[in-house]
Design a binder for these strands. Structure first.
Length: 277
DNA sequence: TTCCAGGTGGACA
DNA sequence: TGTCCACATGGA
């Protein structure tokens, strides 16, 4: 267990509620359990911007510092927005202060956002958890057992009935197609992580069931291409209602993904979301 | 009960 | 190229 003081924007509740991660679990004491690839973490907010991490110094430096994107200065990114020139985005930045774009596992992000299509966030969380329990390896840590996110091979080994039991609906075949492409090496997530955003989108949309929106989510939340700009039903409403003259993407490059996330969180919370998950 | 959700593929003009 | 619709499911 180590204690780390974080000077930049960092709000666990807002990150957990920002629709980018589906497996964070909040405990009674206000701490979160987070599972990331092979690692698990318990993180507890303390006083004065300090957080207790249930890991070693080495693990923090090698895994969690990157996972929370603590090398980026989000305060500066927020300050780039002028309240006079763009009052809506300035309000969104202030409201969502503390959100960070996590550097999540690309494979988990791909499957999670394939599952996300045309569903609300509580339903996505439920299916992702069912999939982990059905196919992921069970592990133990100091707080009990949990399941890792299943590998492509583990998903492919799952009988059709077991996959259907994860309540994926018509997305079952999309999940299998993605697992097949990655298992066979047709899609190399490690390679596209180092490619530019355009090439990443092209490669991702070659998978059956992955369109432009899901590809942008994977690009942003899994490959950390922070200029990616996923447009879902909420962002479409924002663009229609708040930017009838057009959204100035060029102006906000290369941080469009971060601003997108502030706007998504702000608008969804403000206008009622139909879920409280 | 009805509406809607971090959409996409496929048919058709 | 653009538009329309079916697709599964569950939360509110």
């Amino acid at each position: 267990m180590i204690e780390i003081q974080i000077h930049d924007d960092f709000d666990l509740d807002r990150i957990a509620d920002s629709g980018q991660c589906f497996r964070w679990v909040k405990n009674d004491a206000g701490s979160y359990r987070i599972i990331h690839a092979e690692a698990s973490l318990r993180i507890q907010p303390l006083e004065n911007r300090t957080f207790a991490f249930s890991c070693s110094e080495n693990e923090y430096r090698d895994i969690w510092h990157d996972y929370f994107d603590l090398g980026e200065d989000y305060r500066s990114v927020r300050k780039r927005v002028s309240p006079k020139e763009d009052p809506f985005l300035a309000r969104a930045c202030e409201y969502g202060k503390g959100i960070r774009i996590l550097r999540q596992d690309p494979w988990e992000t791909l499957i999670s956002f394939i599952i996300s299509q045309n569903r609300n966030i509580p339903a996505i969380k439920k299916s992702v958890e069912l999939l982990c329990e059905a196919a992921g390896r069970r592990r133990e840590d100091a707080w009990g057992s949990y399941c890792q996110f299943p590998s492509p091979e583990e998903i492919l080994a799952l009988p059709d009935e077991a996959l259907a039991a994860c309540r994926l609906g018509y997305r079952c075949r999309y999940v299998k197609a993605a697992a097949m492409d990655v298992a066979e090496g047709k899609l190399d997530l490690g390679r596209i992580q180092n490619e530019d955003e355009e090439e990443a989108i092209r490669a991702l949309t070659s998978i059956c069931g992955v369109g432009v929106k899901v590809a942008n989510c994977v690009s942003l939340f899994g490959l950390h291409h922070i200029d990616a700009f996923p447009v879902d039903v909420w962002i479409r409403r924002i663009l229609e209602n708040e930017y009838p003259g057009g959204y100035p993407k060029e102006k906000y490059s290369p941080y469009n993904g971060i601003y997108q996330q502030y706007m998504f969180y702000y608008y969804r919370t403000l206008t009622g979301r139909g879920d409280k998950g």
